[in-house]
């Protein structure tokens, strides 16, 4: 029986009197790949902020066994600042200075070998996403949390990124939690799905989540289904 790396019990979070998260309970076993889906304003990013420790004034219990690596939406970066790729990754080793020597190896791992001195501002969305992954990995995390990794990345970059993510997950035995609006990709890649809309509406293996459950949550679910079908069809054609 696998151990649980994340346990959330009776989690509630309010801003003033507005309920953002209500009575959330879940356990994530080691090595799981969880996709969190939900409409805009469902509290997905708030849940991530609670998991990474950015929001602390919540009610309930959140316990995480191990170190967290985090990939924010890339827009947090000020692209005007002339920071080089290796300096950017160095940020992740701020508290683990002994890992600084691993930077070239990590850059190679994420497909950015030899680009140590490239300015981050000149990188494409896909390259930046992989660089952020290297920055997260240098801190040697047990859990990797990704907030909409597909944002600002083109189709090619997305495919490359998810491929890399799967490879790294199996090599490093990581637990991954990913927020995404790309429903096709989530159902394709994630072992477990969580549907969030202020409260947890469903949580289970991706193959067992029923469309009816999702339809209640998302008014535009039909569009999503179409995009999922479209994705699968495209995927099969490629194969």
């Amino acid at each position: 029986m696998s151990k649980f790396i994340i346990t959330v019990e009776n989690l509630n979070y309010k801003i003033n009197d507005t309920e953002i998260l209500k009575n959330i309970n879940f356990k994530i076993p080691e090595g799981d790949f969880v996709g969190i889906i939900g409409p805009n304003g469902a509290g997905k990013s708030t849940l991530v902020k609670i998991l990474i420790g950015k929001i602390t004034d919540f009610e309930g219990k959140v316990s995480i066994k191990g170190k967290i690596g985090y990939l924010p939406q890339f827009q947090t970066i000020n692209r005007e600042v002339p920071i080089k790729a290796h300096e950017f990754v160095l940020m992740g080793a701020y508290k683990n200075k002994q890992n600084i020597g691993k930077i070239p190896e990590l850059l190679k791992e994420v497909g950015l070998a030899g680009k140590e001195n490239r300015l981050v501002g000149n990188m494409s969305g896909g390259e930046l996403q992989r660089l952020s992954l290297a920055r997260a990995l240098i801190s040697e995390p047990d859990v990797l949390i990704l907030d909409e990794p597909e944002a600002g990345v083109d189709q090619m970059g997305k495919a490359k990124f998810y491929e890399l993510l799967e490879k790294i997950k199996s090599e490093k035995k990581l637990t991954i939690i990913m927020i995404s609006h790309d429903i096709g990709m989530v159902f394709e890649k994630c072992k477990t799905i969580m549907c969030l809309n202020k409260t947890l509406h469903c949580h289970g293996p991706s193959e067992k989540i029923r469309p009816e459950e999702l339809k209640v949550l998302f008014p535009d679910f039909d569009l999503w289904i179409r995009s999922r079908d479209h994705y699968e069809k495209e995927h099969k054609n490629v194969e």
Partner: peptide
């Protein structure tokens, strides 16, 4: 120098990594 560079380039993540 490192703290300032991280603060300028990516304040949110610099804080996450302990700056």
């Amino acid at each position: 120098r490192h703290e300032i560079l991280f603060f300028l380039a990516d304040e949110e993540m610099a804080e996450f990594y302990g700056v």
